Amino acid sequence: MSAGFADIDWARPWLAPIETRGRRWQAAALTGYSGYLATLNEDASAAGLLTGRGQPLAFIAQEELPAGASYEGHIAQSGRVPTRHNLHDFFNGSMWFAYPRIKAALNARQAEQIDEHGIGPTRGGVRDALTLFDENAVLFACADASLGRALRGFDWRTLFIDERAAWGVRCEARIFGHALLEKLVAPYKACTGHAWIVDVPAEYFTLDDAGRRALIDERIAHGILAEPLESRAFAPLPVLGVPGWWAANASPGFYDDVSVFRPGRRNR
């Protein structure tokens, strides 16, 4: 049986940034679809957020997406996000509030690609990378370049054991991908995100959660809009290896499982 709204465990540390709003949305979702959409739209109206082409954010039932219209193109043009009554779209909506600039930037680039190339049987490299970010990204904020190199080099011992004390002080992980959040409602060891490394100043780690989110939201959104984007820019990150996210990883032996913590492409 697939997981549902009642299965969300708000004690999971990766859900902390969205817990307050998420609990309200969860309660509304458990009462029914129409009330759930109404709650999302109340929050959207109050927040005044915009989609990729400056349209006010709103949420509509999936069946209101016009026939033949592209999902991302419709959001950019109308501001209305087609939303199903399921966990996948629950977490997608949550990211519009947690990281509104990143979501708008992804939507703007998707709409730009659709305008240029249309909708075909394949997305193309740029749209693939944008979709990968949207669905499975982990934001790896890092004030120490050596930790970013360890992540890219599959150097799990350095990242998770030798430099364990660096987590929360010189680096941290924040889950952005809504498909990844959906998977983590029922966590499993091999669950892997695609890490997007963002350099931050040391002062980042003195900020509260809202301050940290605002800083990386702006910084990453700027990069998405200004720079080429391709799938190989990501680094695999087994998310239950993040210190403090899973009790079993307190033991160094947790990381000996090479089926999860693979040697990888160290030469890259």
Rank of each mutant, 00 (worst) to 15 (best):
M1Q: 12
A3G: 01
A6C: 03
D7G: 03
I8G: 08
D9R: 12
L15V: 01
T20P: 03
G22K: 04
R24K: 14
A28T: 02
A29R: 02
L30A: 01
Y33W: 14
L37D: 09
A46P: 07
L50V: 08
P56T: 01
L65K: 00
L65N: 05
E72M: 00
S78G: 12
G79A: 05
P82C: 10
H85L: 01
N86G: 02
F90S: 09
F91E: 07
M95G: 00
W96Y: 10
P100G: 06
R101P: 09
I102L: 10
A105N: 06
N107W: 08
E112W: 11
E112H: 13
I114C: 01
G118Q: 09
P121E: 15
T122I: 14
R123F: 10
G124W: 05
G124M: 11
T131E: 03
N136Y: 10
C142L: 11
S146Y: 01
L147M: 05
R152W: 09
F154C: 15
T158I: 12
T158W: 09
A165K: 08
E182V: 03
V185Q: 09
T192K: 02
V200K: 00
P201F: 05
E203C: 00
A210H: 10
I224G: 14
A233Q: 06
L237S: 11
G241S: 11
A247E: 12
N249V: 05
Y255I: 01
Y255V: 00
D257M: 07
V260C: 08
G264M: 12
R265D: 12
N267G: 14
N267Q: 15
N267R: 15
